[in-house]
Amino acid sequence: MASLLVLGAGKLALGDMLFILLSFVLLTAAVKKFAWGPVTKMMDARSEKISGDLDYADQERARADKLAKEREDALKNSRAEAIEIVNKAKDNGEDQKKSIMADAHSEAESVRQKAKLDAQRAKQEAMNDAQNDIASLSLEVASKVISKELNANDQKSLIDSYIKELTVNNETK
């Protein structure tokens, strides 16, 4: 076959063709070993890294969005909470104020009541004392008057009237 081809081509072609084939194959192998292999490997690695980085960036963005939303929600909640706390404090204050006022009112009332009672009692006592004093005084005055001016007749009529009065009093009782 080889000699046929060589004869057919007038001994011009086959050697050159083989040489070209061989050198081309060797060149391909050398290029693959020294340039194509490392460079394409790096290109693949780079494209992989780029897509990986893009994925990572997407994830990070989603995470950041979520975080920001959470923060916003928390902020909103805390504001509502603060308002609630303030309201509660206000209510508490109002309640306390009312109860203090009520206490004060009732205490004042009781103090006044007590003062009134004391005053009444004092007045009563004073009146009683005065009555006693007046009675004893008038009795003394009367006894003095009586001891000086009462004679036998008068004494008798006085006793009588007194007895009469007693009986009337008894009857009426």
Binding site: S3, G15, D16, L18, F19, I20, S23
Partner: peptide
């Protein structure tokens, strides 16, 4: 070479 004929100009320049 080995019964084959090599054209020096072709082969040298291809090389």
């Amino acid at each position: 070479f080995l019964g084959l004929r090599f054209n020096v100009a072709n082969d040298l320049s291809a090389l």
